[in-house]
Amino acid sequence: MNSIRTIQQWKQIFQEMKTMEDDRYAEAVQDPRKGVQQLLRQWQKQQEKEQRLHERWLEMNTYERAIRKKGATYIAGVDEAGRGPIAGPVVTAAVMLREDAYLPGVDDSKAITAHMRDYYYERILEQAICTAIEVVPTTVIDEINIYEATKQGMKQAIESLSPTPQIALIDAVPLQLEAVQTESIIKGDAKSVTIAAASILAKVTRDRYMASLHEQYPQYGFASHKGYGTKEHVEALDRYGVIHEHRRSFQPVKTREQMTLL
């Protein structure tokens, strides 16, 4: 064992070391110093975490691998953000990832933190063949209802992709398209990496939209509740009234809008 290595040198080694097959791993195991053993345990935990993320990545690629085995090259994932709020648009996203894309940790946007969503948003754009995002405003939601508005946004996002996907995997929403085969997957954002990627693009885009809206109307607290009907939001509705970004077909906005018109 090379006993001359300093703790600082070991820190650098553990940053470089990729597997236990590295000769330096056996050397670290035999080094009795507490500092080295602490670094070793930290490295082992990180390796275990990366292995779990890799296994999850493989699990979430099950649909994509099966489709590629049948000869498809262009696979789109499609999802939305914002069907439930009483204010703000519904945002739909479609994404086609490169076959060699590797985004360990990508998951349903609701299952990861806002910080991680922002991180993966950039990584997804880097590793995508193409992406498309549609922001469907409240006027359309009120005119045709939220479900139809979501379908419309998804359809537009898919049709905006270039090249055209051979198949689109969609989170829960059944959609019929002439030029693209579609498959609706219940809880697809937790089962398919392309749908998960789309869910992150949609969620980040909508959250940024609501943060911008907050700057215009800070009294409503859009930055915190993102337009959902929280107690804080409803109280702000009572105090300041309905604005153009509120969904007038949704309760409790509908009742307050009617009271205003009386």
Rank of each mutant, 00 (worst) to 15 (best):
Q9V: 01
R56F: 06
V36H: 11
R41E: 15
A81G: 03
E59F: 12
L58R: 15
R41L: 09
S3P: 06
R52P: 00
M20V: 03
E80H: 01
K70I: 00
Q12C: 08
R33C: 03
M17N: 00
M17F: 03
Q37V: 03
I75H: 11
E16S: 10
K49E: 14
W57I: 05
Q9R: 07
I75F: 07
S3M: 12
V29E: 13
S3Y: 13
W10R: 06
W57C: 09
R24E: 07
A81E: 07
D31C: 00
V29I: 10
A81N: 04
Q42C: 03
W57G: 06
A76V: 00
M17K: 10
E55Q: 15
Q12G: 08
K18D: 06
G35C: 07
E59K: 15
N2Y: 12
Y63V: 04
Q15C: 08
L58V: 12
F14Y: 02
E64T: 06
K45Y: 14
P32F: 08
I7F: 14
E16G: 02
Q47C: 05
Q9N: 08
Q47P: 01
A81Q: 06
L53E: 11
E48S: 10
Q51N: 12
D31N: 12
A26L: 10
Y74F: 15
L53M: 04
E55D: 15
K49A: 09
G71T: 01
P32C: 05
A76T: 07
R24C: 05
I4T: 14
Q37N: 06
V36L: 05
Q46Y: 10
